[in-house]
């Protein structure tokens, strides 16, 4: 296991600035998740660490050694790609053996076999080893792709949305599985996703990327409860944070430079109020099965919040809502603490 650090990395493709002045470190044995929307530069960042791209500026260090211009093979990293994960012309077994048979390793076949069997057991693909890799289901393919990284026991794992093509149930299972494996191995993982639940559940720390910039890095709790700006605040939370102009919502005390106020669903006090204190009306209740969303009209603004379990509010009722724990942002969207 090793640590990785990126220092002031810039990378452009022609006119597109894919990564801008990115600096962060993944500690030994840490699970760091990069979270960002499509095009944010997540894949590019991983490719820079793997050595598949060379940065325009800045440096990449693995265990303190500068590897900025080192060949991918010499970095001892494993990469699980977003797409095209398995060689279609090889069986599952040969796919898993491929990295171990590389001229850089030349591992004896019996050791290869024992490693593959161990990993296949861990990922529950033991029965599929002789199948052609094209004859697997999407979930099995992804597990084999992860397995191909695991058999190597590299210093660093780079994973690019490895669970994105799976259905929700399988994704939840593999999420837990992957986290458990990472703990058992003490693996250093740099993991990319645009799924906030994946980020929240697996990460030791989350890095939020936006348009090539690393906006904030911190533990899931920090990122959620203490965002640096509106953008980060909006990345996490389901339903997402409600951001309103200052004054639209009664708040106890606002800083002078505050421009807008953000309230997460759990930080709103709602009460039924038929009297003069009412400031909002319930438009409709959305039933999602495991939870209910309330769509509320507050003056000219609409809010979506999570209903308390067992709520008996119904559409059309007058409400009084108040922010219990608001986040204030200035005109540029920066957090005011």
């Amino acid at each position: 296991m090793a640590n990785v650090s990126l220092r002031n990395i810039d990378k452009s493709f022609g006119e597109t600035k894919a990564v801008r002045n990115v600096t962060f470190e993944v500690a030994k044995g840490e699970f760091l998740v990069l979270l960002g929307p499509t095009g944010a530069g997540k894949t590019t960042t991983l490719r820079l660490v793997a050595g598949l791209e060379k940065p325009d500026a800045g440096s990449v260090l693995i265990d303190g050694a500068d590897v900025t211009s080192a060949a991918p093979a010499s970095r001892d990293v494993a990469f699980v790609f977003q797409q095209y994960s398995l060689y279609p012309h090889l069986s599952v077994y040969d796919n898993l053996a491929f990295p171990l048979r590389s001229p850089a390793r030349r591992m004896p076949e019996d050791e290869i076999r024992s490693r593959i069997e161990a990993v296949a057991g861990m990922l529950r693909i033991g029965g599929k080893l002789q199948n052609r890799s094209t004859k697997l289901s999407g979930g099995e393919m992804q597990r084999v792709a992860i397995g191909r990284a695991l058999v190597r026991r590299p210093a660093i794992y780079l994973m690019d949305e490895p669970l994105s093509s799976l259905d929700a149930k399988l994704r939840a299972d593999l999420r837990l599985e992957l986290k458990r494996i990472q703990r058992d191995l003490g693996a250093t993982i740099l993991y990319v996703t645009h799924d906030q639940i994946e980020a929240m559940t697996m990460a030791d720390r989350i890095g939020i990327l936006s348009e090539g910039r690393l906006v904030q890095v911190g533990s899931p709790r920090e990122i959620y409860a203490d965002p640096d700006n509106v953008y980060v605040a909006a990345r996490l939370g389901q339903p997402s944070i409600n951001v309103l102009p200052l004054g639209a919502l009664p708040v106890r005390s606002a800083p002078r430079t505050a421009y807008s106020v953000g309230v997460r669903t759990e930080h709103l006090d709602i009460s039924r109020d038929g009297g003069p204190g009412a400031n909002a009306r319930l438009d409709w209740v959305e039933h999602l099965g495991d939870q209910n969303h309330l769509h509320i009209r507050l003056g000219d603004h609409r809010l979506t919040i999570l209903a308390q379990p067992g709520t008996d509010l119904s559409a059309g009722e007058a409400l009084r809502i108040e922010a219990a724990n608001p986040l204030f942002f200035d005109e540029d969207g920066r957090r005011i603490r």
């Binding site: 991918p72 093979a73 970095r75 990469f79 491929f98 990295p99 590389s102 390793r105 191909r148």
Partner: peptide
């Protein structure tokens, strides 16, 4: 690229 990372030329 996967092969390059895995130690192949």
């Amino acid at each position: 690229e996967a092969a390059l990372i895995d130690g192949y030329t």
